[in-house]
Simulated assay, not measured.
Amino acid sequence: MLRTLKELFNTLAEPSPADRPEQQEHRLQLATAVLMVEVMRADAASGDDERTAIVRALGEKFALQADEVDRLFELAQSASRDAPDLQGFTSQLNRGFSAAKKVRIVEYLWQVAFADGHLSNHENHLMLKLGDLLYIPRGDFVAAKQRARAAAGLKPEGH
């Protein structure tokens, strides 16, 4: 697992052919976690529900132990505060994941957005932006949103 803030930002540098597989995996884990933190921060009333959704999603997606998830979450919060934009993170995911895996990540992001039972305008706007940055086809994006909404026990839109 990543250890320092310097390592954190080094992981966001362009991958080199000499990168070890675990370095590439750390880079993808961090980029995913940062986007989740960004969605959490988009809600002015974010709290334990969103954090729990992030921890659960990271543990599920990357099969990490609880202490590894906690460290990844901590690093993601630091990176989120210090990052000038989301492009570096989304480009990591675009290079490292297939279209199907990116759709699954978008579904996790929606789960974070719906974790408190409410989707704010800021969360929705950020999700639309992330969907575009990750090149998710609109139909897949909407389907991921609906699956996350149903998983949160919320009524479909328009009802």
Rank of each mutant, 00 (worst) to 15 (best):
L2E: 13
L8N: 12
F9P: 00
T11Y: 11
L12P: 05
L12R: 04
L12I: 10
E14D: 12
P15H: 08
S16G: 12
P17I: 06
A18V: 03
D19M: 04
D19H: 07
D19C: 02
R20I: 07
P21N: 10
P21Q: 12
P21K: 02
Q23I: 14
E25T: 06
H26A: 14
Q29P: 08
Q29C: 09
A31C: 09
A33P: 05
A33S: 08
A33C: 06
M36F: 06
V37L: 08
E38N: 07
M40Y: 00
A44M: 08
A44S: 13
S46L: 09
G47P: 01
G47A: 00
G47Q: 07
D48K: 12
D48Y: 03
D48E: 14
D49W: 02
D49A: 13
R51S: 12
L58I: 12
L64E: 03
L64T: 10
Q65L: 14
E68N: 09
V69T: 09
R71P: 06
R71A: 14
L72E: 07
Q77S: 02
S80L: 02
S80E: 09
S80R: 09
R81N: 10
D82E: 14
P84W: 11
P84G: 10
D85P: 02
Q87C: 00
Q87K: 15
G88Q: 10
T90R: 04
S91G: 02
S91I: 02
G96L: 00
A99S: 14
A100G: 08
A100R: 09
K101R: 15
R104F: 11
I105P: 00
I105R: 03
V106I: 10
V106K: 05
E107C: 05
A113E: 09
A115D: 07
D116I: 10
H118W: 04
L119S: 02
S120V: 09
S120A: 03
N121K: 14
H125S: 13
L126T: 03
L126F: 00
M127W: 05
L130H: 01
G131W: 00
P137G: 03
R138W: 01
G139P: 14
D140T: 06
F141Y: 13
A143V: 06
K145H: 10
R149V: 07
R149S: 09
A151K: 11
A151C: 04
K155W: 11
K155R: 15
P156Y: 05
G158S: 07
G158K: 07
H159C: 03
